[in-house]
């Protein structure tokens, strides 16, 4: 042994310099792996929410003269989720770099692998309904929903949203209570026949988007009536706040009058009174 190594060994022995436990290293690698795994999963989740939001886009609006596609995209584009996705993507890449031999991986492999992993997991979440569930049943969808409602709350610009009350097929009319609690008579003579023949039967109580224009103070002429969610008129989330506003509307003299009118019409045509009626 050289003098130098004797000095080193002597110092270790004399000062009883301990070695770090192997668990310290195991835990370190495990934590980095956990960071990578969680970031990958959360990135996938963010990506699936981006997909969900994109599938919720109202592309029909782009042909509507009153709507600027740019303004629409600015309001509803899921930028927050996209940034979140990239944030988790970078975190996952950081995790990979620090797991055992992770540094051996080329940058393009880390980027490609993480993006592919997040996208594949995200697609699975999206197609198996996980993204839709999270968007509609947790706080994760609140921002998107708020933006969506905000965009569709401009009747003066031909954009109306609300829950369908009474439907009068023969008259091609229906009533909608909007998110502010205001009741609108929707005049639907411009809507295609199949709407009145098929869709209108199952419309009561459903949340819809109505594209058209105001023709009288409380009357809106519909050019298009769309389900609130892309999934169709089934499986939507009924906003509890909106539901409460509807209930309050039913208590008003106007609501009660509408209820009476509805029942009179049903009696006139000898139809059963619907349990969903206002």
């Amino acid at each position: 042994m050289s003098t130098f190594s004797k000095d080193i060994i002597g110092k270790i022995k004399k000062e009883h310099i301990p070695q770090k436990s192997k668990w310290t290293f195991f835990i370190k690698y495990f934590l980095f792996f956990l960071v990578f795994l969680m970031a990958l999963i959360l990135g996938a989740l963010a990506f699936s929410l981006v997909l969900f939001a994109i599938f919720e886009f109202d592309f029909e609006l782009f042909s509507h003269p009153g709507v600027s596609p740019f303004q629409y995209m600015l309001t509803v584009f899921p930028l927050l989720w996209l940034i979140t996705f990239f944030g988790f993507f970078f975190l996952a890449s950081y995790g990979v770099k620090h797991i055992k031999k992770g540094y051996k991986l080329a940058l393009w492999k880390i980027i490609g692998g993480n993006i592919l992993g997040s996208i594949l997991l995200g697609l699975l979440l999206f197609f198996f309904g996980g993204a839709g569930f999270l968007d509609q049943h947790t706080f994760l969808g609140e921002h998107r929903e708020r933006q969506h409602i905000k965009f569709w709350s401009h009747p003066e610009q031909g954009l109306l949203n609300g829950i369908v009350g009474n439907v009068y097929k023969q008259e091609k009319e229906l009533f909608v209570v909007d998110s502010q609690g205001k009741s609108w008579k929707i005049e639907g003579s411009r809507l295609p026949n199949h709407f009145w023949e098929i869709v209108a039967d199952d419309l009561q109580g459903k949340k819809v988007k109505v594209l058209g224009n105001i023709i009288a103070p409380d009357t809106f002429s519909a050019e298009m009536i769309l389900p609130w969610h892309r999934g169709g008129f089934r499986g939507y989330r009924m906003d509890p706040e909106h539901q409460e506003k509807m209930r309050q509307f039913h208590e008003t003299p106007e609501g009660k009058m509408m209820q009476r009118q509805h029942e009179e019409i049903l009696k006139k045509y000898n139809l059963p009174i619907s349990r969903h009626a206002l």
Binding site: I8, P18, K20, K22, T24, K100
Partner: peptide, 20 residues
């Protein structure tokens, strides 16, 4: 450099359980 070298070996000793 010798001081650094000593530090290197002491660090190696402390982290020896982490050597793959």
């Amino acid at each position: 450099a010798e001081e650094i070298l000593q530090e290197v070996f002491l660090k190696a000793w402390k982290n020896l359980q982490g050597f793959d």
